[in-house]
């Protein structure tokens, strides 16, 4: 009796897992199969998931609807720059907070923790107005008046992404677990602090740098709100903004939209599947902050 109850429980829990996995996969399956259908198939009441004939040319047509080469370039460029700059300045600051002593260190660290909790949605308006009034950029005078500043430029797109303090915290948490003897040995060998950081902490810090890179990559590539606010016109659009082009047509061509959505998402999903460990570790370290 007890044993059969146990088996029933097991079966039920596997059933629930199967149900949830199916519910998670279903939209992805729909996205893929409908990207291969023709519009007349989509309009017909036929409920089959599989397309009659796979219309692979939808992907080509989707990419030709608007300047997708430009959109992909914009997203890639912004993401790569954000990842590289973040890795450099965040790991450097993380090392300082983990190892060096100086006045105001604790105060600054609290400020950086607090900074992680400031939602970008709250500071959006002053940041836009700051970006707009960068002196001597985009037709501005020396006081930052008269032009559009860094609005609708790559710099404007990139800057707010590298200002966040999450990466500093992430690196600090990792570096602080290194044995202090490493520093002492380096100091005795005559290494300065910066040399110690470059030749010891950076090579040993590869796992945390990988986590930071993956999280920053996904965060920047997937971002919608900031590019929406800061870009104007077609030339500066990122892939996420460009997807909404299809949404604004009078009749939405769902097959093309699904094809484009799949291509835009595939990039992050692939990175994520291959670097799942780093992704998960990054989220976990970041969440210990409470």
């Amino acid at each position: 009796m007890k044993k059969s109850l146990h088996i029933l429980g097991k079966v039920l829990s596997w059933l629930l897992i199967a149900l949830i996995v199916a519910a998670i996969l279903f939209p992805f399956a729909v996205m893929f199969f409908f990207s291969l259908k023709t519009m007349s198939e989509i309009r017909s009441p036929d409920p089959s998931l599989l397309p009659d004939v796979a219309a692979w040319e939808n992907y080509k047509i989707a990419l030709q609807t608007g300047s997708w080469g430009q959109y992909f370039f914009n997203s890639t460029f912004v993401t790569v720059i954000v990842v590289v700059i973040s890795l450099i300045i965040n790991s450097m600051s993380g090392y300082v907070f983990a190892r060096l002593n100086f006045r105001f260190k604790n105060f600054l660290f609290v400020l950086i923790l607090a900074g992680m909790m400031i939602p970008p949605q709250v500071t959006m308006i002053p940041v836009v107005s700051l970006i707009r009034s960068v002196p001597l950029a985009g037709g501005n005078d020396i006081l930052g008046q008269g032009g559009s500043g860094l609005i609708n430029t790559y710099s404007g797109l990139i800057i707010p992404f590298i200002a966040g303090s999450f990466g500093v915290f992430l690196c600090r948490q990792y570096f602080v677990s290194f044995p202090r003897e490493l520093d002492d040995a380096a100091l005795i060998d005559g290494c300065g602090r910066f040399r110690t950081f470059i030749s010891i902490y950076l090579p040993l810090g590869k796992p945390v740098l990988a986590s930071l890179a993956v999280l920053k990559f996904a965060g920047t590539w997937n971002e919608y709100t900031w590019p929406l606010v800061i870009t104007q016109g077609d030339a500066m659009k990122t892939v996420q903004i460009a997807l909404t082009n299809f949404r604004n047509e009078s009749e939405i061509r769902w097959n093309l939209l699904m094809a484009a959505t799949l291509m835009v998402s595939a990039v992050v999903c692939l990175v994520f599947i291959f670097a799942q460990k780093h992704f998960v570790n990054g989220i976990l370290t970041g969440s210990i902050k409470g």
């Binding site: 939209p27 992805f28 729909v30 996205m31 996904a218 590539w221 997937n222 971002e223 919608y224 996420q240 997807l243 909404t244 299809f246 949404r247 939209l257 699904m258 959505t261 835009v264 998402s265 992050v268 999903c269 994520f272 992704f279």
Partner: peptide
């Protein structure tokens, strides 16, 4: 891991 834009579109 998928963007909210992509999720919204699907």
């Amino acid at each position: 891991a998928t963007s909210m834009v992509a999720v919204s579109m699907v």
